[in-house]
Design a protein around this nucleic acid. Structure first.
Length: 476
RNA sequence: GGCCCCUUAGUCUAGUGGUUAGGACGUCGGCCUCUCACGUCGAAGACAUGGGUUCAAGUCCCGUAGGGGUCACCA
């Protein structure tokens, strides 16, 4: 029976270090973290590095880095330690061996000497005969001789079924005849996923296992093993997959899938958290949550059972929403690196603050701010269409008039600029827009920009005059 | 193919037998306006399908279809 009803559940995130922290993994970690924080329980991080072919130290670093960036701190695990360490599976090999030996002694597992070749032949035969392959039990009754190289197989009941109450999917039943005596320990003593994860979850006192729903089919056999070991069975929560736009499992071909890629794109970590939380979980009609609100409201009961499509546009909207709430200092601190990586000579000064003030409502990400408003720090890139439409011969007298008026004043305040543009327009019987647009194109290179007075103020008088001169030449 | 899971608009979702089926992203339109964005107002857009159960079904049951997962000495 689930023992998670205790007030302080222990949860864990147990990634395999075979690559960066994936969006899907990040959400799994987030839900575990949220529930741990909600309940005052513990969030344990464990590295499942038993696949030595694919595991790398760099990936461990990337995963820790990604989790830290998102703000998902762990109470026990790599670099922070804890009473149940070590937190790398390859450093716990003796433990798995011990549990396997115990199962063997009690007759609940046995050594198997079958070779891969024999097994493969069996699988092939089964396929040819169009029947399901199950391990035939060849070694079941063989006397145990530890000196022979062997794997360890767990003995699964032939009949009956195992049912568990998944916290998100409800009752799930697995008939035992669809299971087989699976390998729990390789010949080299390294455990397989089902066994390693289980032994660790037992010894680390995990009371609620929340993981991707690609593991639902592992659950019954794990429960059988918990029971064989006389260990309390934890509660399970299987989280639906995250899909790409084509409804296939999210992967690289759908675009960026690592959380650090979103850092580079200029997303706020909290915006990613907010979006990911809402992908598969809901709280009424609410969309925007602070971290505290997320922690307060999160609940596995409101995690949906259906897979969800990752939608970058919506995440960008969430990011914009959060970006707009940032105070100027923080906005500057977070945005500046993106200007620098664009090769722009920005620094945290009055100019940057003004740029960010006008950019705040106009961009979805920091990278977008830097690239969209690069003309404040670099020469304009004149858009040919804008040029054709607004920098023709008609524009020349307008630009000259604005230039002349600007050259003879020191007042760049908004009221003064308003009067200046208004008088240039009125003198010709034009609407302000007819003057503002050519000026905008001359100053920014395009037809869309912050308000023209802001643009002039940010650029400063000298640079504005210079760009107007360039505009006059272009219009000629 | 066996087994398991899933199915409300293009997308994320609310909904726990009685609602004009709600919200959000996106889309389209109005307003605001020097352009763009923000804001604001509005519009289009969904219960996969067929049977049951019930006075009443998006909600419960069965079938069908579609999608996904899993069937390793990977995790």
């Amino acid at each position: 029976m689930p023992s998670e009803t205790t007030e302080r559940p222990r949860l864990r995130f147990a990634p395999s270090p075979t690559g960066y922290l994936h969006i899907g993994g990040a959400r799994t970690a987030l839900f575990n973290w949220l529930w741990a924080r909600h309940t005052g329980g513990a969030f344990v991080l464990r590295i499942e590095d038993t696949d030595r072919e694919r595991s790398t130290q760099a990936a461990v670093g990337a995963i820790l880095d990604g989790l830290r960036w998102l703000g998902l701190d762990w109470d026990e695990g790599p670099e922070v330690g804890g009473p149940h360490g070590p937190y790398f599976q390859t450093q716990r090999l003796d433990l798995y061996r011990g549990y396997a030996d115990r199962l063997i002694e009690e007759g609940k597992a046995y050594a198997c000497l079958c070779t891969r070749e024999e097994l493969d032949a069996g699988r092939k035969r089964a396929e040819a005969e169009k029947r399901q392959f199950r391990y035939p039990g060849t070694c079941r009754e063989r006397p145990y001789d530890p000196s022979q190289r062997h794997v360890v197989r767990f003995r699964v009941p032939e009949t009956g079924a195992t049912t568990f109450d998944d916290r998100v999917k409800g009752l799930i039943t697995t008939p035992h005849d669809t299971l087989q005596d699976e390998v729990i320990l390789r010949a080299d003593g390294v455990p397989l996923y089902n066994f390693g994860a289980l032994v660790d979850d037992i010894t680390m006192g995990i009371t609620l296992v929340a993981r991707g729903d690609d593991h639902v089919n592992n659950t019954a056999r794990q429960i059988l093993m918990y029971e064989a070991l006389g260990a309390p069975v934890p509660a399970f929560a299987h989280l639906p997959m995250i899909l790409g736009a084509d409804k296939a499992r999210l992967s690289k071909r759908h675009g960026a899938t690592s959380v650090t890629a979103y850092r580079e794109l200029g997303f706020l970590p909290h915006a990613v958290v907010n979006y990911l939380a809402r992908l598969g979980w809901s709280h009424g009609d609410d969309e925007i949550f602070t971290l505290d609100e997320l922690v307060r409201h999160f609940d596995f009961a409101h995690v949906g059972a259906t897979a969800g499509v990752f939608n970058l546009e919506k995440m960008a909207w969430v990011n914009q929403t959060w970006m707009r709430k940032l105070p100027p200092e923080e906005l500057a601190r977070r945005a500046l690196p993106y200007f620098l990586s664009e090769g722009l000579p920005a620094e945290d000064d009055a100019k940057l603050r003004h740029v960010l003030e006008v950019a705040q409502a106009r961009a979805h990400t920091f990278a977008e701010i830097a690239s969209t408003f690069r003309y404040f720090y670099a020469p304009i890139a004149l858009d040919p269409k804008a040029k054709a439409k607004f920098l023709g011969p008609d524009a020349r007298p307008l630009l000259e008039a604005v230039r002349g008026a600007l050259a003879s004043t020191d007042d760049l305040g908004t009221p003064a600029l308003e009067r200046l543009f208004a008088s240039v327009a009125e003198a010709r019987g034009l609407a302000i827009g007819k003057v503002a647009q050519p000026v905008r194109v001359a100053l920014t290179g395009g037809t869309a920009s912050p308000g023209i007075y802001d643009v002039v103020q940010i650029l400063g008088r000298d640079e504005t005059l210079k760009r107007l001169d360039d505009g006059v030449r272009t219009a000629a």
